[in-house]
Deep mutational scan, measured.
Amino acid sequence: NQASVVANQLIPINTALTLVMMRSEVVTPVGIPAEDIPRLVGMQVNRAVPLGTTLMPDMVKGYA
């Protein structure tokens, strides 16, 4: 099963992502693939992302 990117903490709206904010986990539904974590660093979320939430492509500005 493919691992997805999951929020390791509450990520406030418009926050630029850092490695410490994300972890990989096998979840359903599948979100952004864990191998894209390096690409996500520095990108901003367009909404608040609660701890444990799977990051979906539409949550990250410029990802989709």
Results as ranks from 00 to 15, higher is better:
residue 28 T to Q: 07
residue 40 L to N: 01
residue 62 G to M: 12
residue 48 A to C: 11
residue 39 R to Q: 06
residue 24 S to M: 11
residue 33 P to E: 04
residue 30 V to Y: 13
residue 26 V to T: 09
residue 21 M to G: 02
residue 4 S to A: 12
residue 26 V to M: 07
residue 3 A to F: 13
residue 37 I to S: 14
residue 9 Q to E: 11
residue 39 R to C: 03
residue 33 P to M: 10
residue 34 A to P: 10
residue 49 V to M: 13
residue 6 V to K: 09
residue 55 L to W: 01
residue 5 V to H: 00
residue 59 M to H: 12
residue 29 P to I: 14
residue 11 I to K: 00
residue 47 R to A: 11
residue 22 M to E: 00
residue 53 T to I: 13
residue 25 E to W: 06
residue 26 V to H: 05
residue 40 L to Q: 01
residue 49 V to C: 04
residue 56 M to I: 11
residue 16 A to K: 05
residue 27 V to P: 03
residue 39 R to N: 05
residue 52 G to L: 08
residue 40 L to S: 01
residue 25 E to A: 10
residue 21 M to I: 03
residue 42 G to M: 13
residue 57 P to N: 10
residue 48 A to K: 07
residue 8 N to H: 07
residue 36 D to C: 15
residue 14 N to R: 05
residue 17 L to F: 12
residue 61 K to N: 10
residue 29 P to N: 12
residue 29 P to C: 14
residue 12 P to G: 09
residue 45 V to W: 00
residue 44 Q to W: 13
residue 44 Q to F: 14
residue 39 R to E: 03
residue 55 L to C: 03
residue 36 D to W: 05
residue 53 T to S: 11
residue 14 N to H: 07
residue 54 T to Q: 04
residue 6 V to E: 03
residue 8 N to R: 14
residue 32 I to P: 00
residue 18 T to E: 02
residue 2 Q to F: 13
residue 32 I to M: 05
residue 56 M to D: 10
residue 35 E to D: 05
residue 39 R to G: 12
residue 43 M to R: 13
residue 47 R to L: 05
residue 63 Y to C: 02
residue 28 T to W: 03
residue 23 R to I: 06
residue 28 T to Y: 04
residue 24 S to Y: 07
residue 48 A to D: 15
residue 36 D to K: 11
residue 2 Q to P: 15
residue 37 I to H: 04
residue 61 K to R: 11
residue 15 T to E: 05
residue 5 V to S: 07
residue 60 V to E: 01
residue 61 K to A: 06
residue 2 Q to R: 02
residue 64 A to E: 11
residue 22 M to I: 12
residue 20 V to P: 04
residue 29 P to T: 13
residue 12 P to V: 12
residue 7 A to K: 00
residue 34 A to K: 06
residue 48 A to M: 14
residue 28 T to A: 08
residue 17 L to V: 07
residue 1 N to I: 15
residue 5 V to E: 00
residue 5 V to G: 04
residue 19 L to T: 08
residue 30 V to Q: 11
residue 49 V to S: 04
residue 11 I to E: 00
residue 46 N to I: 13
residue 3 A to G: 11
residue 41 V to S: 10
residue 59 M to F: 15
residue 25 E to T: 05
residue 7 A to M: 08
residue 56 M to G: 08
residue 36 D to G: 09
residue 18 T to I: 07
residue 29 P to V: 10
residue 21 M to E: 02
residue 15 T to D: 04
residue 4 S to F: 07
residue 63 Y to M: 14
residue 43 M to T: 09
residue 52 G to F: 09
residue 37 I to F: 08
residue 18 T to S: 10
residue 29 P to L: 15
residue 29 P to Q: 13
residue 47 R to V: 12
residue 62 G to K: 08
residue 21 M to L: 15
residue 62 G to R: 07
residue 46 N to T: 10
residue 10 L to A: 12
residue 45 V to R: 00
residue 5 V to A: 06
residue 41 V to D: 03
residue 13 I to C: 04
residue 31 G to P: 00
residue 23 R to K: 11
residue 1 N to L: 11
residue 17 L to G: 00
residue 12 P to W: 09
residue 42 G to N: 09
residue 61 K to H: 10
residue 47 R to N: 05
residue 17 L to W: 00
residue 6 V to T: 14
residue 18 T to P: 01
residue 26 V to L: 14
residue 50 P to V: 15
residue 51 L to Y: 12
residue 17 L to P: 01
residue 64 A to H: 13
residue 31 G to I: 02
residue 60 V to I: 13
residue 55 L to M: 08
residue 20 V to A: 09
residue 17 L to H: 00
residue 34 A to R: 03
residue 50 P to M: 10
residue 23 R to H: 05
residue 38 P to D: 11
residue 31 G to K: 02
residue 10 L to P: 08
residue 11 I to G: 00
residue 54 T to H: 12
residue 59 M to D: 06
residue 42 G to T: 12
residue 4 S to H: 02
residue 57 P to E: 04
residue 58 D to Q: 08
residue 38 P to Q: 13
residue 54 T to C: 02
residue 40 L to M: 12
residue 34 A to Y: 08
residue 31 G to W: 02
residue 40 L to G: 00
residue 39 R to D: 02
residue 49 V to E: 01
residue 63 Y to T: 04
residue 5 V to Y: 01
residue 43 M to K: 06
residue 5 V to Q: 01
residue 41 V to C: 03
residue 59 M to W: 11
residue 20 V to Q: 13
residue 24 S to L: 12
residue 13 I to K: 04
residue 13 I to V: 06
residue 42 G to W: 08
residue 23 R to L: 05
residue 13 I to F: 10
residue 52 G to Y: 09
residue 40 L to T: 02
residue 51 L to T: 14
residue 4 S to E: 00
residue 11 I to Q: 01
residue 19 L to N: 03
residue 27 V to L: 05
residue 62 G to A: 07
residue 17 L to R: 00
residue 12 P to N: 05
residue 31 G to R: 04
residue 31 G to C: 02
residue 15 T to K: 07
residue 25 E to Q: 07
residue 29 P to W: 10
residue 6 V to I: 13
residue 42 G to C: 08
residue 16 A to R: 04
residue 54 T to L: 10
residue 5 V to L: 05
residue 45 V to G: 01
residue 62 G to F: 08
residue 2 Q to E: 15
residue 62 G to T: 08
residue 61 K to V: 11
residue 28 T to L: 04
residue 40 L to F: 03
residue 31 G to D: 01
residue 58 D to Y: 10
residue 21 M to Y: 10
residue 60 V to N: 00
residue 33 P to Y: 12
residue 50 P to K: 10
residue 63 Y to W: 13
residue 44 Q to R: 08
residue 56 M to Q: 09
residue 57 P to F: 06
residue 25 E to V: 03
residue 47 R to P: 02
residue 14 N to K: 04
residue 29 P to A: 11
residue 64 A to D: 06
residue 41 V to W: 10
residue 53 T to R: 12
residue 32 I to W: 02
residue 2 Q to M: 10
residue 48 A to P: 05
residue 6 V to H: 04
residue 4 S to M: 04
residue 48 A to Y: 12
residue 38 P to V: 08
residue 7 A to N: 03
residue 41 V to P: 05
residue 38 P to G: 05
residue 45 V to E: 01
residue 5 V to K: 00
residue 58 D to N: 06
residue 32 I to H: 01
residue 14 N to Y: 08
residue 32 I to R: 00
residue 6 V to F: 09
residue 42 G to L: 04
residue 64 A to V: 12
residue 44 Q to H: 05
residue 22 M to N: 00
residue 61 K to M: 07
residue 15 T to I: 06
residue 64 A to G: 13
residue 11 I to C: 03
residue 28 T to D: 15
residue 17 L to C: 02
residue 28 T to H: 06
residue 1 N to W: 11
residue 38 P to A: 13
residue 47 R to E: 08
residue 60 V to P: 01
residue 19 L to Q: 04
residue 9 Q to M: 13
residue 19 L to A: 07
residue 23 R to A: 04
residue 58 D to C: 15
residue 33 P to F: 14
residue 39 R to A: 05
residue 55 L to K: 01
residue 55 L to I: 11
residue 54 T to E: 02
residue 10 L to M: 10
residue 63 Y to D: 03
residue 43 M to L: 13
residue 57 P to A: 14
residue 59 M to I: 07
residue 28 T to F: 03
residue 62 G to Y: 11
residue 13 I to Y: 06
residue 27 V to H: 06
residue 1 N to D: 15
residue 33 P to K: 06
residue 42 G to R: 07
residue 15 T to Y: 10
residue 3 A to R: 02
residue 60 V to R: 01
residue 41 V to I: 12
residue 18 T to M: 09
residue 15 T to Q: 06
residue 34 A to W: 07
residue 26 V to A: 10
residue 27 V to M: 14
residue 25 E to K: 03
residue 3 A to E: 15
residue 16 A to P: 11
residue 55 L to S: 00
